[in-house]
Design a binder for these strands. Structure first.
Length: 623
RNA sequence: GGGGGCGUAGCUUAGCGGCUCAAAGCGCCGGACUGUCUCUCCGGAGAUCGCGGGUUCGAAUCCCGCCGCUCUCGCCA
């Protein structure tokens, strides 16, 4: 299967040898993974990209000088071995190795290069701790020799190839877009590149190919895709790198359903190719508003079913002061029925306070129903029998269940602009599902979240900000509302708030997988007047728009087709496919959380002459 | 920018109510061993305890500062 790896140095890949090769003379080449010297005979575990095979040196088939040389081998020496494939005798198979049914009986050995003792090992026992990540990044080329890590890059490659094959077959053209571009006016910080030829001017590295792909639609390319590098100069996390990769695509003459069909097909192809999993398509769809109401987040994990229940009407008159405080306000009492949650210990229930606070609530309120069906817990005393029955009816709370509630303002019912606590229920939901093992890890729970808001409200600056993407087309009715509101220029604080309160929706969507936002996209604005109006609503005056987006609006004047697209976070997708815990495990040469490259030591100070070339003078921090 | 955690032989860790505490496993070096596969057995080398300062008769251990890594909030689609 890997005969194509046959070269001047070898006839086979060592790791691809199988029982069917028995009897064949072979040459293999690779690294000394491990050596077992029993005195008279020597075993060698030889490793190459395809795996590990045992080589045996024995006086009955190995010349004495070859055996002597084998005894001098050290870990990670690079060697070439000539020999013959033999089946292992009964009782000596190694089920841990894919090559475990055979071994190579060596007749020749050539040391290609010697390895000095390594600063970090390649071979680890199952229970052995890996070295610190900083060391492994410093010696990344050694860490990448670990079969477990190498495997992630095989997965990554196959995912990329599956994406290319599928999209090509669907009529998409792969087009590269510039890395040296102009700064992005909104969103994340840009990485900047000084221009030598134009003193004082700078390029920016692209945060995404967004504008370019829309221009390609104007050009009539019809369908575009690219596996694109995106760069953002923001603080890092375990699942965030300063440079990352997207599967970026855009289509002309389409609506949401056309995009969803392609994106679903793309994911199905990747999961089929890489994981052997048949995804169920089409993916379910829910609106942003519904997702917030049912799960408290715009990226719900649907591998378990716990949903938010509003119990305001049932409980606001209970004999419990916190509940009574909601009457006559916009506050609501909402919570989660957690099956089997009654078995949590007092200490575990106390933890819920912190969990809820993380989500912005003042705390969590809980009751549980014991095996005898009786209600116990924080607000149990305030709930008389009649009210309890209404409560059970509303929530489905059964014996053995827990109900965890939060009181406060919720999105969609918050005209007064109070602090929203939807996130607290999201935190509680995820925390309790994990704690009680409610997550069905065999499921692949994809969904589309649609109809994101056009605007969010920036309370601090009393202005509108875009919720999803400033290029997303508002829904039919919302287009007119935006045009009306911006006829006289940017609306004032009062009018802006009113516009926000209308709850306008856009034709923007996310693809969510097991609680991870993996893709984002929208039907784009292709009408210059509408795009202009959205920019105006966001507070840009006409001159500013002209300076920042003039080329896009100009392009739209000459016949832009309706278009829509998406971008999948490729690194994150591969991370999930590979079961890796960190993005750094699926990026060949990642940066640390302080955005350093430990192996090549970037970033680095630059000599004055080189700075002079690009007309840049370094200013000390704070100066 | 804020907060938490970590930093002891090449690697992973123990030691951290201060004064025989610098220890173990892996790796490395030397020796023995003819069927191992985390080979086994015997012996050995290897550490200015992240850096700088302070407290103390005495600091890996206590205090302050800095650096690095990491998690996280802000930020980020």
């Amino acid at each position: 299967m890997t005969d194509f790896l046959a070269t001047a140095y070898r006839t086979h890949a060592a790791g691809s040898l199988r029982a069917a090769d028995a009897g064949n003379p072979v040459s293999v080449a690779g690294w000394v993974h491990r050596r077992r010297d029993l005195g008279g005979i020597v075993f060698l575990d030889l490793r190459d990209r395809e795996g590990i095979v045992q080589v045996s040196f024995d006086p009955s088939w190995t010349p004495a000088e070859v055996l002597a040389e084998a005894r001098r081998l050290g870990a990670e020496d690079v060697v070439r071995v000539d020999g013959t494939v033999f089946p292992r005798i009964h009782g000596q198979l190694n089920e841990a190795l894919e090559t475990g049914e055979i071994e190579v009986r060596a007749t020749g050995l050539e040391v290609l290069t010697r390895a000095e003792p390594l600063p970090i090992q390649v071979d680890y026992a199952a229970d052995e701790e890996l070295p610190g990540e900083d060391l492994r990044l410093r010696y990344r080329y050694l860490d990448l020799r670990r079969p477990g890590l190498l495997r992630n890059f095989v997965i990554r490659h196959r995912a990329a190839q599956a994406a290319r094959a599928y999209l090509s077959q669907q009529g998409f053209l792969e087009v590269e877009t510039p890395l040296l571009t102009r700064p992005t006016p909104e969103g994340a910080r840009d990485f900047l590149v000084p221009s030598r030829m134009h003193p004082g001017e700078f390029y920016a590295l692209p945060q995404s190919p967004q504008i370019y792909k829309q221009l390609l639609m104007v050009s009539g390319f019809d369908r575009y895709f690219q596996i694109a590098k995106c760069l953002r100069d923001e603080d890092l996390r375990a699942d965030r790198q300063p440079e990352f990769t997207q599967i970026d695509a855009e289509m002309a003459f389409v609506d949401e359903d056309d995009v969803f069909r392609v994106a679903e097909g793309l994911m199905a192809a990747i999961f089929r190719e890489v994981a052997g999993v048949e995804l169920e398509t089409p993916f379910p769809q829910i609106t942003f508003a519904e997702s917030m109401a049912r799960y408290g987040t715009d990226k719900p994990d649907l591998r378990y079913g716990v949903e938010i229940v509003d119990v305001t009407e049932v409980l606001q008159d209970a004999d419990f002061r916190i509940f009574q405080g909601v009457r006559g306000t916009e506050q609501r009492i909402r919570g989660l029925r957690v099956p089997g949650g009654a078995r949590l210990s007092r200490r575990e229930l106390d933890e819920l306070q912190e969990v809820a606070k993380r989500g912005g609530a003042a705390g969590a309120l809980w009751v549980k129903r014991g095996d005898d069906g009786a209600l116990a817990g924080q607000f149990a005393k305030g709930v008389d029998e009649g009210r309890a029955n209404a409560f059970y009816e509303a929530t489905g709370l059964a014996a053995g269940d827990l109900f965890a509630a939060v009181v406060g303002h919720f999105r969609g019912a918050n005209e007064g602009g109070g602090v929203e606590v939807d996130g607290a229920l999201d935190e509680l939901r995820r925390h309790l599902a994990r704690k009680l093992d409610l997550v069905d890890t065999t499921r692949h729970a994809w969904l589309w979240v649609t109809e994101f808001p056009v605007f969010d409200w920036d309370a601090e600056h009393e202005r509108l900000v875009y919720a999803h993407n400033p290029f997303s087309m508002p829904e039919d009715g919302a287009v007119q509302a935006v045009l009306d509101a911006t006829r006289e220029g940017t609306p004032g604080a009062e009018a802006a708030r009113a516009l926000y309160a209308m709850g306008l929706r856009s034709r923007a969507y996310d693809a969510v997988y097991n609680g991870n936002e993996l893709a984002s996209g929208s039907v784009r604005i292709h009408l210059p007047a509408v795009q202009q109006a959205v920019f105006t609503a966001l507070g840009m005056d006409p001159d500013e728009v002209r300076a920042k987006f003039g080329f896009l609006l100009e392009a739209y004047r000459y016949g832009a087709p309706p278009h829509a697209g998406f971008a999948f976070g490729f690194d994150r997708l591969v991370m999930l496919l590979a079961g890796a815990g960190s993005l750094r495990d699926v990026v060949a040469f990642p940066k640390t959380t302080s955005a350093r490259a430990l192996f090549e030591e970037a970033p680095t100070a630059i000599a004055d002459a080189q700075l002079r070339d690009v007309h840049v003078q370094v200013r000390a921090p704070g100066a």
